[in-house]
Amino acid sequence: MERVPSPGASRFREASIAGTWLWLGLFALLPNLVLLLVAFLDRDTVGFFIPSLTLDNFRELFAPVFLGVLWDSIRLALCSTLVCLLAAYPFAYALAKAGPRLRPWLLLLVIIPFWTNSLIRTYALILMIGAQGLVNKCALGLGLIGAPLELMYTDFAVFAGMTYTFLPFMILPLYASIEKLDPGLADAAKDLGAGSLRTFWHSTLPLTLPGVVAGCILVFLPSLGSFYIPEILGGATNMLLGTFIKNQFLVAKNWPLGAASSSVLTLLLVLLAVLYRFTSQRAAGGYNAPLNARRDGE
């Protein structure tokens, strides 16, 4: 079945695949391995680390201070992921069902912030929620509040910043999976007696689950690791994971501990990637699974 490629084409293919592997190996795999290695080394106050193996860094991750940081970060990341999901799903759905004239404009609303530097967008948010910001001015002007709300430098500001920054990462994968959806399936569910809610629950949602999971991963992980959003918008009281890792490397000069906490984050990413693969296989009805192997087994 497979077309036999000419020697030249085959060499080109091998070369480009090898190039990709080399790139990934050098700039993704190797640094992560070094990071993992450093996580098992001892701290040195003068240099970065000393080459003696230890589990102390991971033990330190179970200290109440770090667990508190981790818990706060996960909670905040989960909240912004959830809000992103709830806000993005209806929008992505409308986007997928929009007519050919409206759709490019709606898509543009997502793409423009997506392409804008997120640091700039975070600073822009200060103009919105600062003491003299648009939100306060409007609320004061309308007489809804007597004094300006203190929105800046709170958990809420960080939460709003994350939700705002990462929303496009939720919308785009959702849009991709809803757009692929066969509209006949919703018709079939209704035809078989399911109301709109149950049609969504039994047909639309399970079939767009890969998009939901992909979007959640794309929002949850950067939210968890982000350090500039909490630094710009957040208060000094609650440190988050991203800031913690950054501080270990740049402020406390404790590379091994920074490496250990960063490795935990990477591990989380791997686990979520496995989850994503699992859900997308289910939604495809085992299409991605080795079909022949299953048939042979029967």
């Binding site: 018709d187 939604a283 495809a284 299409y287």
Partner: peptide, 9 residues
């Protein structure tokens, strides 16, 4: 339905 519209999942 013409395309059967079986639930693939």
């Amino acid at each position: 339905f013409q395309s059967y519209a079986l639930f693939p999942h």
